[in-house]
Design a binder for these strands. Structure first.
Length: 111
RNA sequence: UGAGCAAAACAGACAGUCGCGGGGAAAGUAAUUUUUUACUUUUCAUGAGGAAAGUCCGGGCUUCACAGAGCAAGGGUGCCGGUUAACGACCGGUGGAGGCAACUCUAAGGAUAGUGCAACAGAAAAGAACCGCCGAGAUUUUCGGUAAGGAUGAAAAGGCGAGGUAAGAGCUCACCGGCAAUCCGGAGACGGGUUGGCCGUGUAAACCCCACCCGAAGCAACACAAGACUGCACGAUAGCUUGCUCGGCUGUGCGAAUUGUGGCUUGAGGUAAUCAGCAAUGGUUAUCCUAGAUAGAUGGCUGUCAGAUACAGAACCCGGCUUAUAGUUUUGCUCAAAUC
RNA sequence: GGGCCAUUAGCUCAGUCGGUAGAGCACUUGACUUUUAAUCAAGUUGUCCGGCGUUCGAAUCGCCGAUGGCUCA
């Protein structure tokens, strides 16, 4: 079960105060939230394309994040913003990139 | 075989696995007198389109306005008949345009109700006369007749031929176009004929005239419940404070951010058969229930099919129209060539 | 979910009751200057967002689209 960010102010808080890690397909924002759980927000703006394209981008990100989440540290808010290049991207290259970006952010549990 | 025309259907499928939305069933826990409610777990079936899109029309539903009718304003529609809940949609026809054909396209009422416009060119763009032609005077110009010929233009005063004439002219006649009257066929648009008189252009997707139609706004509508703001008004009436008055509190009414629930999917519904109709469509019978989210659910991976996936994602619901669209399949028909 | 508007030269805009499409800046060339700038003179520049239609003729009128923007709840 993934807890998702809903309100606009929560997104704004992450954009302004969090760390950002840009990639080719997406940008990851990462911030500590003092709640003890892990929350995820996905953004696909109108710039990317029409409704169908945006849905596809959101689903690909969601599925990748779902697989990655169990290995990550609790107590953070994550926002993933899709970029234009995601339109032609396939599942695995997006997954590799997200993994790289999150590693940079130090999101994974380390022994 | 080639080229083409029309009408339809599909929109990757199947298996495994992980995950998501709402729903059913079972079990457990908590609250509760019960009903029931909330949470957790397990399990079962189910879950985007032909355009879900654009928002160009029409309707249901809801609120507001009017609760009688007419007129005006504004907007729309515009050959005829039918279908429909309704429509600017659809079907069948008529006229017109295109194509050898199958067939396709068609905003197609009125220009003798009125007003406007028709650049440049041209004598003249609507009651026409520059050159010309003819006649008369006069002697190089005037008067009259004329609209065949010339030139301009997108468009030039019905077309074309014959008769006729001073020259000409629907002046007369034949054919054609158009108009009027009338007869026949048709439900009608209209088609066919007869007779008459010979007829001042185009534009109404210019204003307009005629006929018909239209109250406004939208599910973020709206209904119910709670209700911050310590909001505004009342406090004449009820209660408390008190012996009484003032005051205060409770209270009553109103506005209202916001939250929750309903609206929300059984409907002008789908499928099949049959009957009526050329068809759109309608009737009857049987049968089925098939998303309902609220930051918004359909995705990932693996395998098989020869290979590959276009345009694209429901948000109150229907009927159309328009636009985007890879590829596959079916049916009927036309033309050309060849063979029998 | 509705409503409204715009699109014209490289840029910013005129032209909108149909009749050969313009201004400023920019650009090019020439003059002036030792040179540049400024100034002066001359010149170039358009699928009038796309398609179809009405008309003799369309940037202008009608219809269907595209893109961009504004706005209401």
């Amino acid at each position: 079960m993934v807890i998702s960010l809903t309100e606009n102010y929560e997104f704004q808080r992450v954009y302004k105060k969090g760390q950002s890690y840009p990639g080719r397909y997406a940008v990851v924002y990462y911030r500590k939230n003092n709640r003890g759980n892990l929350r995820l927000g996905i953004t696909a703006t109108k710039k990317i394309g029409k409704a169908c394209v945006r849905n596809r981008a959101r689903r690909l990100i969601y599925e990748n994040m779902r697989l990655l989440l169990p290995t990550m540290e609790q107590g953070y808010d994550i926002v993933v913003v899709a970029r234009n290049a995601i339109v032609g991207a396939d599942f695995f290259s997006l997954g590799k990139e997200l993994q790289r970006l999150l590693q940079k952010a130090g999101a994974f549990l380390h022994e």
